[in-house]
């Protein structure tokens, strides 16, 4: 009962913040666009979190799934004239398919071997889209990707796109929470915590690793597709290894294995990137500083601070109760 109430309180606060933000944003076109980026990154990083934060499988190649989602959706709408909303979903599944293909060898690998495989995957996708000119138009990129429209309404402004993306983020959050709190989520976490014991408890470790890759690639692919339709233009520049690093930085900074971690990480890093527009050449340096902060001071990210604050306040509470008694 108490937990229920707490959950609702969190939800109310979140809703209040969103309403205030929406109110502010309706005037500011640029702010709306930044918030759209935040939403897209939240979806992508949530995908990475399922794989890395919950199942313990590292990936430095998530820009690959992001790219696959983007290009699939763009090409489906431009070449086959599919409605964008449908193309986004198909793009998610195509990305998922690649996730499963990568997972077959990846499920056998751990630590640095897995890192290398995922880096290689990200690079392969990048090079493929950069050189396959007939399909992807190479480094010039694809222009004129249509906006998403649902039931005849086209999301053409940044503001309307924000509401659309916010809706997707909420759906993703609900899905993630439900997965985590289920038999499947427990299997994921058990594999992260102790793969040998998970195996001994009847969990088919290989199957669940592949499943985690699939879910992860699906979400990041969807994020890529949404990005393509928001911007209307994509080129290989967006999908370099530094994009993979950015996703990982967002996740680590926000906090792995939590619901709000990816949201906090995405918000802070997107904001930083926007504020530092004039220092674009120093971007990677800034991400590196974020990673160093995490490594030395925030092993559990920003969420870790919140958790430890909560814990200490709870302790004070119980101490008081003990003193009073």
């Amino acid at each position: 009962m108490l937990n229920r109430l707490k959950e609702k309180k969190g939800l109310l606060i979140a809703l209040a913040i969103i309403t205030v933000v929406c109110g502010l944003m309706l005037k500011e076109r640029y702010l709306a666009l930044v918030l759209c980026f935040v939403c897209i990154n939240i979806i992508a990083v949530t995908g990475l979190d399922i794989l890395f934060g919950y199942t313990g499988q590292v990936s430095f190649g998530h820009a690959g799934y992001y790219a696959i989602g983007s290009y699939t959706s763009a090409l489906l709408t431009l070449r086959l004239n599919l409605p964008p909303a449908l193309a986004v979903i198909i793009a998610g599944f195509v990305s998922m398919l690649f996730g499963v293909i990568i997972a077959f060898p990846a499920a056998k690998l751990v630590k640095h071997f897995l890192s290398l495989l995922t880096i290689a995957f990200g690079q392969m996708v990048y090079i493929f889209i950069a050189v396959t000119v007939p399909l992807t138009n190479g480094t010039s990129g694809i222009v004129g990707i249509p906006h998403i429209s649902i039931f005849g309404y086209t999301f053409s402004t940044n503001q309307s796109n924000f509401f659309l993306l916010l809706g997707v983020v909420i759906l993703v959050f609900i899905a993630k929470k439900r997965i985590v709190d289920s038999r499947v989520g427990r299997a994921f976490i058990a594999i992260r915590e102790n793969p040998h014991a998970a195996n001994g408890m009847g969990i088919n470790v290989r199957y669940y690793k592949i499943l985690a890759f699939a879910v992860s690639a699906f979400l990041t692919g969807i994020a890529g597709a949404l990005y393509a339709h928001l911007m209307g233009f994509i080129s290989p520049d967006t999908f370099t290894a530094s994009q993979s690093t950015l996703f990982m930085t967002m996740l680590l900074f926000g906090g792995i294995g939590s619901l709000v971690g990816p949201a906090i990480g995405s918000a802070i890093l997107v904001a930083t990137t926007e504020l530092m527009q004039s220092f674009v050449s120093y971007q990677m340096l800034i991400y590196a500083i974020f990673i160093l902060i995490v490594l030395f001071y925030l092993p559990n990210g920003v969420v870790g601070i919140i958790e430890s604050l909560k814990e200490s306040s709870r302790k004070q509470h119980t101490d008081k109760a003990v003193n009073n008694a």
Partner: peptide, 12 residues
């Protein structure tokens, strides 16, 4: 609850 894995069947 992880121990109950084989006795249950809910999927993704």
């Amino acid at each position: 609850m992880v121990g109950c894995h084989t006795k249950t069947g809910a999927g993704l």
